[in-house]
């Protein structure tokens, strides 16, 4: 290597860097195809359900009057509805996020069980007055319009 010509070494470095970066890119592309969390609306989940156990997100409105707490005190059950009245039952164990209430939008991260219940590991609700999870845009037009005209306060 030490006997290598100067031009030659630069070439080797460039090739090594390119190979690593292209490798990283291909690896990323491959992994992203397989591992991305897909987003489902309730109607999509009913028409074309994801595989049981596959990590996906479900986004919709929490149906009014559907929220019940199990006897253990920490398991929530509720129904998420879509635009056309389709409904998906959801089970969630944990502390619901701030401002998670019936009639508001929610994105549930989790997986579908064999009996058709969606088991959520995590609930993403509105963070504050101005923030709507991006996936909910278009579903709650009033909020989206409000968000567009107001400046959202944020963190950097």
């Amino acid at each position: 290597m030490s006997a290598m010509k100067a031009k030659h070494q630069r070439l080797v470095l460039v090739v090594v860097a390119l190979v690593a970066l292209v490798g990283a890119g291909l690896l990323a592309a491959y992994a992203l195809r397989n591992q991305a969390n897909y987003f489902y609306l309730p109607e999509q989940m009913q028409a074309d359900p994801p595989e049981v156990g596959q990590a996906v997100r479900l986004g919709g409105m929490v149906e009014a009057g559907s929220l019940i707490t199990d006897p253990d005190g920490v398991t929530l059950r509720f129904t998420v509805t879509g635009n056309d009245g389709s409904r998906v039952p959801v089970r969630f164990s944990g502390i619901a996020p701030d401002l998670f209430v019936e009639g508001s939008g929610v994105v549930a991260e989790g997986r579908l069980e064999a009996d058709g219940t969606f088991v959520a590991d995590n609930l993403l609700a509105k963070h504050d007055e101005n923030y709507v999870p991006k996936e909910l845009e278009g579903m709650t037009q009033a909020q989206a319009a409000k968000m567009a005209e107001e400046t959202t306060v944020g963190i950097e």
């Binding site: 860097a17 970066l21 992203l32 996936e135």
Partner: peptide, 29 residues
Amino acid sequence: VMLSAILAIVLLGTLYPLLTEAFDVRVSV
């Protein structure tokens, strides 16, 4: 080179949802 590769992976993972959204597929990584 390894740091740059990790950088490329983070960048691609961050931008990928933007790319798919252009095709109306919503994805989070």
